[in-house]
Design a protein around this nucleic acid. Structure first.
Lengths: 332, 332
DNA sequence: TTGTACGCGTTATCAG
DNA sequence: CTGATAACGCGTACAA
């Protein structure tokens, strides 16, 4: 059974509990001979160390809690996956929860996760309820926020700037001569990253003295076909649209496929820009101009930052900008 | 600080530790009046229950451990996400790890996860090392395997049959008159699901007395463009190929896009079938014929099975076949 | 190098 | 309905 305790191992090896513990934890402080006996006893009785008890005693769980909006979107999965790799190589495990873009869900999940006494916390979101922020502050553990480059993180932030990225994409379109530029994003009220992409779009227009036209701005749920739908709505409503900036590759690809179905030339009929540079962006016909976001690096660096902090190092920059890159392809 | 203990709450509320615990756990066994005082004290001091200590004392963690190959593929993410929802509604949390299709990694992760004493385990894989199986058996907790319909699960299995699905897709192609049918999958040695899809393909050929031609079978890494590459390799090597069965939509879409680039008609030049019915399958041009797999349902049902078992119910069928469905579209 | 004694913060048991 | 007390299994002083 899995009910073998450390004491059983100790008895079998003819040593005390502590020696077993030491063998497992810092084996250099134990004689080679006893070490072997202990290890033998461990495999002999099939001992599996109880990390719950260990955590209680040592006041360290070696667990990182992570909260993401969803796992159905590969972008979040990519970051988490990268972080999980880093953590595992350092003996940490991942407690993962999804909150579907709900601030209230996030708050309640933070509260219960904190009960598990994670050594650190990873949040793929930068807006939180006041209560959530307070809980995190009081917990006194390293926290890394991810997904947007905010000025005042709870503790640390590792990201790219959605504002700058969208602004830069819009300026690019303007530089290509497009003037009537539409913008499609998720619901800005519940997705602060898309809200900031919208702000970037607005800022670019403003700086170039292009009037903001609400008729050119749409909010859609996450799915390919809503990109197609958005494009049709926009062209129907405002036939003189010259370009569309989609705040996700998902919609941009959906729109591109709709154009393909209707045999519309892109960018002849309308130019299209995506966001994210997912793999399909460079496979689709025509290839998609988009903003490359460093999803994987975000996870890796975030994990590393947490580890540095847990190893007692004072983390120098609390705000890490991983940047973005406009990838120009055939759709513009 | 987050260092408030139950005793601090008790003192503040003028009751004993036990009463606080009871209020939190089974509030119906406590007077309405004391209950309110306790709850007030809890918010007053900002108490967050220590679930680590609770787990040690009660010998139940309310944690489900899940091991998946990767989170970068939305298919695995979709199942996990669905399960996480079910679990969370019942007060369970998810300990998640990725193993990148490595059996050795899986074994070592199972071993350390078991140390956290999860109440149950979810594995998105059906092949394991003997040691891994032994560990799981000895742990004496509910285990659900997912991803293929095997005959002898460690404990329970919730899935669809990859063998039958691929066989059925191949038979469909034969029924449409295609005779020279190619097959593209992941590396069969490290992916038992794709191995069984290949077996299904072989079985369909055999039953229809079509000789098996190794030149028509390819293994590729997971990425859109390897679908394009595979298609070109196959057509180059064996120009008379009439149809290709891809063991993932990813490659099928990649191949379709390559055809689009070269202005080849599909199914005129070659018929294409995918696997999975991801959202893009019905958006791509031409729409992709594919096998629909119930990823979300797999996660939901697997989670429910584990919960049923943890609630003491004897789970009737240990093997749950959620089926698949061939979706005929324009690519064949 | 190894062992003894105690504490970690909760739940379970049994009285009152 | 409430309270005292003993586990839970392992770390961490400190002592040997």
């Amino acid at each position: 059974m899995g009910q073998v305790r450390m004491e059983d191992v100790a008895r079998r090896a003819g040593v005390s509990k502590v020696t077993v513990s030491r063998t497992l934890h810092c084996s250099e402080k134990v004689t080679e001979k006893t070490r072997r006996r202990v290890l033998q006893a461990i495999t002999a009785v099939g001992y599996v160390k109880n990390l719950v008890a260990g955590s209680l005693a040592s006041n360290r769980t070696n667990v990182i809690a992570a909260i993401v909006p969803t796992l159905t979107n590969a972008a979040y999965g990519t970051s988490v996956h990268a972080m999980a790799e880093v953590l595992r190589q350092n003996g940490f495990h991942l407690l993962l929860g999804t909150v579907d873009f709900s601030l209230a869900e996030e708050e309640s999940l933070i509260a219960t996760f904190l009960g598990r006494r994670p050594d650190a916390m990873y949040l793929h979101a930068c807006r939180h309820t006041p209560a959530a922020r307070r809980l995190l502050r009081n917990a006194g553990i390293p926290v890394v926020e991810v997904g947007d480059l905010i000025r005042h993180p709870i503790d640390m932030v590792v990201s790219y700037s959605n504002f700058e990225a969208a602004k830069s994409a819009t300026i690019y379109l303007l530089s290509k001569g497009y003037r009537r530029i539409a913008f499609v994003s998720a619901f800005k009220r519940e997705n602060e990253r898309h809200f900031n992409r919208w702000r970037g779009y607005c800022a670019a227009l403003r700086e170039n003295e292009i009037p903001y036209d609400p008729a050119l701005v749409l909010e859609e749920p996450f799915a390919f076909h809503f990109g197609a739908e958005a494009l049709l709505t926009l062209l129907n409503r405002t036939p003189d649209i010259q370009a569309v900036l989609f705040a996700s590759d998902l919609w941009a690809v959906g729109a591109l496929l709709e154009c393909s179905r209707r045999r519309w030339s892109v960018p002849g009929r309308v130019a299209i820009v995506g966001f994210g540079d997912q793999e399909i962006a460079r496979e689709i016909v025509p290839q998609l101009t988009t903003v490359r976001l460093p999803f994987e690096e975000v996870g890796r660096v975030a994990g590393q930052k947490l580890l540095d902090r847990l190893h007692g190092q004072s983390v120098k920059p609390k705000i890490v900008d991983l940047g973005f890159k406009l990838i120009e392809r055939a759709s513009t």
